[in-house]
Amino acid sequence: MPSKIYECISKISESIMANKDYLTELDREIGDSDHGINMARGFQAVMEKISPDDSDIGVALKKAGMTLLSKVGGASGPLYGTAYMEAGKIMIGKTELLPEDMKAIFEAAISGIQKRGHAVRGEKTMLDAIIPASEAYSAKISEGSDMISAFEAACSSAREGVEYTKTIIATKGRASYLGERSIGHQDPGATSAALTLEAIRDYMKGK
């Protein structure tokens, strides 16, 4: 039986692959037409690197992070790479994901992305999906929700965040060169972040 973390990362990878052209098309409008291509190249390599026997969540996440760092390139490579590596660090030695672990993963991923990219919420980046998702998740958990419903809430906040990116000017990344012209377009990185969270949700729900 493949490990849980292997199955979860496979699910993320499938979703990124399936949306490769969509993500690239979004990047064509406000970037340089490569986000889906970059992410798909990265996840293809991740699937070659991790093994169904990797049961240590931390080890698998760190492997995934290192691979993304060395295969994706662009802005999203260091950002997603760092996010997975930071998440991996706090999960070393664990084979089960508890609700508090997921909260810590969100926070570690966000601080990793911010350490590298110096962006805050509202700059039309992946953070506009991830930060609201993290907040919604934590709020649900502290209300006593179970992990799946908390993650459902995280996913709908991430989608709202993606929609919100259409309304704002990009001030980080390539899209910032467009200034006002970036309004009306959805951020590719926020979209890939929402897809990632939805894939994790689908994995949790056994879909």
Binding site: L69, K71, G73
Partner: peptide, 12 residues
């Protein structure tokens, strides 16, 4: 040299 129009990665 990175991929077409994509920054090269740190290891390279």
């Amino acid at each position: 040299a990175g991929e077409v129009f994509t920054s090269p990665t740190p290891d390279q």
